[in-house]
Design a protein around this nucleic acid. Sequence first.
DNA 1: AGCACGCCGACT
DNA 2: GTCGGCGTGCTC
Length: 802
Amino acid sequence: MTDRIAKVVVDVPAQETNKIYDYLIPDQLLDGLVPGMRVVVPFGPRTIMGYVLAIHNHSERDNLKELANVLDVQPILTEELIELGKWLSEETMSYYISSFQAMLPQALKASYKKSLHRLAPIEQDALNTLFDGRDYIDALELLEHVSLRQINEAIKRGEAEWDYEVASKGKVKTIQMVKKVGTLDQFDQYLADLSRQSKKQFQLVDYFLGLEEAVPVKEVLEQNKTTKQTLSKLEIAGCITFFQGEVYRDPHQADRFTRSAPLPLKPQQKQALDKINQALTAIKNDVFLLHGVTGSGKTEVYLQAIDTVIRDGKQAIVLVPEISLTPMMVDRFKQRFGDAVAVMHSALSKGERFDEWRKVHRHEVSVVVGARSAIFAPFDRLGLIIIDEEHESSYKQEDHPRYHVREVAIKRGEYHQCPVVLGSATPNLETYARAKKGVFTLIDMPDRINDSVMPAVSIQDMREELHLGNRSMFSGALKEAIQARMDRKEQIVLFLNRRGYSTFVMCRDCGYVSECPNCDISLTYHQRHDQLKCHYCHHQEPMPKTCPTCESDSIRFFGTGTEKVEEALNQTFPEARVIRMDVDTTRKKGAHERLLKQFDNHQADILLGTQMIAKGLDFPKVTLVGVLAADGLLNLPDFRASERTFQLLTQVSGRAGRHDLLGEVIVQTYTPEHYSVELAQAYDYQAFFNQEMALRKAYQYPPYYFLTLITISHEQLLKTEEVARTVVKLLRKHLSDEAIILGPSPSPIERIKGRYRYQCMIKYKDEPNQKAVLKKIIEHYEPLKRKENLSIQIDLNPQQLM
DNA sequence: AGCACGCCGACT
DNA sequence: GTCGGCGTGCTC
């Protein structure tokens, strides 16, 4: 007997439905249905989408319903990805459906349409006339006009029924194509019948006789300067045929890339490549940490390792942080591997993303370069996974499933027995610790390939500047350095980790600070629109002219954002051309690229920006990098603050003097004696690692302890507190005595979007019970979750403690 | 998450 | 008496 039970995960993201359902496979679908396909299934009174995880020959239950339909011709998940999805759900405590959705492009999500289907004339006149010649009415439209009762009565009388339509969201783009189908005889016959005036027809016959493959109709018309009407004559004669052909929305279509050849390698690059190649030939799933300073030539090592992989007939995934997925980076891969590369990043439209994904799915490419989600590329012969800038926080997904791409990469590496390469100048502390322990293989690349030295970093103590009477945001040294670059026609990059104009607005008379009504956070002034904005819930309000409480007019801006720096730059250096780059100036599609190109063409002298300019940029004429306030990150309530500061300062310094001109870095700070500032100045990763590890050990943080962060939120403060307290109590009771449970305490931002937030943290070394306990707690609060909109979020190995 | 069922108060 | 509010339970 054939297997006819499909094991299905249904598209309902809820605790109670987070299980695998059994369906009977009807005869007509039996042929060709395989695991990994999307299906349409009846679920209660409606019809929804689901993923087939397996096909079995028996079920624990009887009275199974039948599958309604199949949405795919080919499976969209491989056996490996099905297992990976299940693992991901368990690992992150997410629903199965959420994991599978996260692994696939948006375009493969289901779209649902509910409508009323008229089967016979309806007694109820109002309802009947509403149909007005149609047989289906959309449910939303329907309910605007008639009551549910009337509809239900019609259904009961058998005059109508609900119809649930399930379709895939994304569309495959097609264009009209034409190809030759006629025989030579047919063409001859056609020519014989033509009148001598039909010049275009003769031309077209000629054209098609010399053509073997299909061509877009548009192209034929353009090339022959004719019209569809004329072309159709040949179709009627049976010489050619029209059809809809699939095409890719290719965002890089217009670009022609000159292919690049592998560059000669320096000894340290050769050594690194050799080690990776060894693992490639041995088919071993080693994890390498490529610790190489900025400019050490990591990318060329990646490129050449991938080359080996491709020549073996295998495939490679390259992950880069979203922010550094710049055209420059993409071009480098396109130049080396041409059409063998698919690119996936968030700047693509949903359709474009879908098409890049389909290239991978059909194995038309061997390399994917992309941001986080590209780790799920449906390759079947994976030979290598590379994660560049592995310390980047964007590799952790911050909503369900809360996965870290590094862990997924290692999992896939195990399955395919392929190496994973993590690259960084400032590795994540946990990664480096694993490398030192020998879990990962450490490869050092300490030298810059062009033998240039790292730029000198000088620290400016802003407290001293203040004592000297300098109340501006530029230290004397920075001001001088900027002026010098301006005089020499060189370029400058300035970095400030805060957008907007001011960080907060305060009344000098009464101390009033404008705060967001929904979030416990002060509002940021944005000069451009003269508005106060909340960066968390996007609330905005006009800037008050006088203090709302005491009506004094001494309401002032405090703190500094990029807008204010821009203004100050224009005042201090009136001749300087400044480009400001932050979320506010790059919101529009393509703005990011445009601004960078402008700067590259030296249409500006100063590039001023937030985090987004810290990575991957490489401009030959930049000889000065200024960090306006290194303390911005340092004072955040997060145990990783020092690490982030060190990483940021090092990354930013790497932007200066990468070429023949000597670079200089100036870091302004109020805490010059902080070790992450001092050691970044000395480019001493080792010392930083040692010092930070000692602190992590003393304060019981990763990598010495694992963390779990639980955030409870609710509209009422009291309820939030109460639940948080109970959660902690339950954890204390059910976890081992070795687990350290902190809290509950208000989250660093106690209220966001009108909801109070409390958190507690578990620090542990080995807690095999933890997930089961957490699951129990979640289940216990399930009713309250539905009834009062309570939310309990669990983040295993959190990267952000906010 | 929907959706049905069922129980209660507010109306013609 | 009927309409519609929402609390409860189920979905192979």
